[in-house]
Design a binder for these strands. Structure first.
Length: 548
DNA sequence: ACGTGATGACTCC
DNA sequence: TGGAGTCCCTCACG
């Protein structure tokens, strides 16, 4: 039995679980349930059927049993045999079985293969991008000394005032950044350093006319085949788990942004020479940045939205993060409603939808008819009929008309049914809006026909995809390629790790894999609006770019 | 019955 | 050696 102990671990001695690890970890909320005890049986020699799941030490011990050991063992046995005057037939048979098993295991090179597999499964993470920094050691302050130890009388302190408001509002207010513009100060640059001028040039570079070539499926597939991951296309762009990411539309360089769990926004120019390997890090929010997009009309602007209730606009020209919209509730999602990207639809986690016009102060604020108060996951605006927007609610996607919204209960123009668990994303296809792709926790990706905009849109395609990302990963969502009307990208839980591109018909177009540079789940994925490039962000802040 | 909110083993420097 | 970094397919409760 392993003797190594870590914090919070209880070693159950002399009890061996049949189907569990030998050690049982105790956490504050997860104590050993009494009913589990029935799965333990006494570890005694009277029970010959005792089974134990091998732990690491055991495996190492087995690995160490080279032929020499085997020889030793046998000589030991012979020695005992001579001393005790021979072995029983049963013991001889047992030894023979052991020899045969060892010979078989050696013949298939199991241990060697397992060693190789171990080395393959954990390549060293990329050291590009944000660097490890040792935390600056602050001057050690004199330790506090109690009044009792100072031999003084205890002070009479008044009780603190009773906390007001709900827990929720308390958790929001103290953590939110102050409203008003925040200076655009990179946290990984020396104080006083200006933003690189090249950044300014790149950001103002208008995207060359939108690339809308209708590629035949075969042609599209061969384009995807030219896109590869390389060592220099992986970098740590933010510190924590990536929640959202976007490519800047400029085409002379690959420039992208990522938002993480801690409210940070990282900018990365591939091959750039500013910051850490081209990475600049900002902190405009305090909680997860769950949605971001560059303004199509003003490429110097990056809109970012956070659970902390703020929607901000990073403007490189002004070098600030401007306040765009502030809410009491956690914000979840937004999309641009107008071509000039000055009007936006913003959705809160609790089902409120706001139409935000950045030119006028004050915002109209609508509450949709959602029954479940925690139901709004995603909004997507129709690319042609901009007054329509789709809302992923708990188990249904509803398409609303922004001109006909009511304060409390709005009527949906069309609905997409068939989801059996909560929907994590729903997006209109990029050119026509004739399709909507949804990702659902019931392990299906669905494509709907929304061309007719009838009260119920018909389901065209269902693709099985494991969506059980568990506790530590961002949810997977299917996102269209803006260059191709009918194909979308989605992350995957499959090993080897991969990113998949599907046609709306359900046909897999390509699985992007890389044994050397990709070993983690890429939950957040997006295509470049003009170039043949694809990004994927993981749970430790690393961005991966597949590009031609 | 689902949504939600809760860590920890291991590795590297 | 210990602390920071990395990665991640539960589990119980309301």
């Amino acid at each position: 039995m392993a003797t190594r102990r870590t914090k919070g671990e209880v070693v159950v001695k002399d009890l061996t679980p049949v189907n569990m690890e030998v050690t049982v970890r105790k956490s504050s909320r997860n104590t050993l349930a009494p009913k589990r005890l029935q799965y333990f049986e006494e570890d005694s020699t009277t029970k010959p059927t005792r089974r134990k799941r091998a732990n690491k030490t055991d495996v190492e011990n087995i690995r160490k049993r080279t032929p020499e050991h085997e020889e030793d063992d046998h000589s030991d046995e012979k020695y005992t045999a001579n001393e005790n005057g021979g072995l029983s037939a049963y013991e001889l048979e047992r030894l023979e079985n052991i020899r045969q098993n060892q010979a078989f295991l050696s013949s298939i090179n199991l241990y060697q293969a397992s060693e190789e597999l171990n080395q393959l499964s954990r390549p060293k993470p990329s050291q590009r991008g944000l660097l490890r920094r040792t935390v600056a050691v602050t001057a050690v302050l004199p330790s506090r000394k109690s009044l009792r130890l100072q031999m003084k009388e205890a002070e009479v302190l008044p009780l603190p005032p009773e906390p007001r408001g709900t827990l929720l509002s308390q958790s929001f207010s103290p953590t939110k950044k102050p409203s008003g513009p925040l200076p655009m100060k990179a946290v990984n640059m020396e104080t006083g350093d200006e933003l690189p001028s090249e950044l300014m040039q790149l950001f103002s570079e208008d995207s060359i006319e939108e690339k809308r070539m209708v590629l035949h499926q075969n042609e599209y597939c061969s384009t995807l085949k030219t896109m590869r991951l390389t060592e220099e296309r992986v970098a740590k762009v933010v510190k924590d788990r990536i929640f959202s990411a976007a490519f800047h539309p400029c085409s002379s360089s690959l420039l992208l942004a990522a938002g993480d769990k801690g409210g940070r926004v990282g900018l990365w120019k591939l091959g750039g020479d500013w910051g850490d390997d081209g990475v600049l890090l900002f902190e405009p929010h305090t909680r997860p940045v769950c949605c971001m997009a560059f303004s199509p009309a003003h490429p110097t602007q990056l809109l970012s939205l956070s659970y902390d209730g703020s929607l901000r606009c990073m403007d490189v020209e002004k070098s600030v993060f401007d306040d765009v919209y502030n809410a009491q509730d956690a914000l979840k999602t937004f999309d641009f409603m107008s071509h000039d990207s000055l009007t936006m639809v913003v959705g809160s986690l609790y089902g409120d939808v706001a139409i935000v016009d950045r030119r006028t102060p004050g915002n109209s604020h609508e509450s949709l008819h959602s029954l479940d108060p925690k139901s709004l996951r995603c909004v997507s605006v129709h690319p042609l009929q901009r007054h329509y927007f789709a809302v992923a609610e708990s188990r249904v996607v509803s398409i609303y008309d922004s001109r006909r919204l009511n304060k409390n209960k709005s009527q949906a123009v069309s609905q997409l049914h068939g989801h059996s668990l909560s929907i994590s994303s729903a997006y209109f296809s990029p050119w026509t809006g004739n399709r909507v792709v949804t990702s659902c926790l019931d392990d299906n990706i669905r494509v709907y026909d929304t061309s007719a905009m009838t009260s119920t849109s018909s389901l065209l395609t269902t693709i099985r995809q494991n969506m059980q990302t568990g506790r530590w990963l961002s949810k997977l969502s299917a996102v269209w390629d803006p260059k191709q009307e009918d194909c979308f990208v989605v992350g995957s839980m499959l090993k080897p790790r991969r990113v998949q591109v599907y046609h709306q018909s359900g046909k897999l177009q390509r699985s992007f894999m890389d044994t050397e540079n990709l070993s983690t789940v890429l939950s957040v994925t997006a295509f470049h609006p003009t170039r043949n490039a694809l990004l994927g962000g993981n749970a430790s802040g690393r961005m991966h770019v597949f590009s031609d």
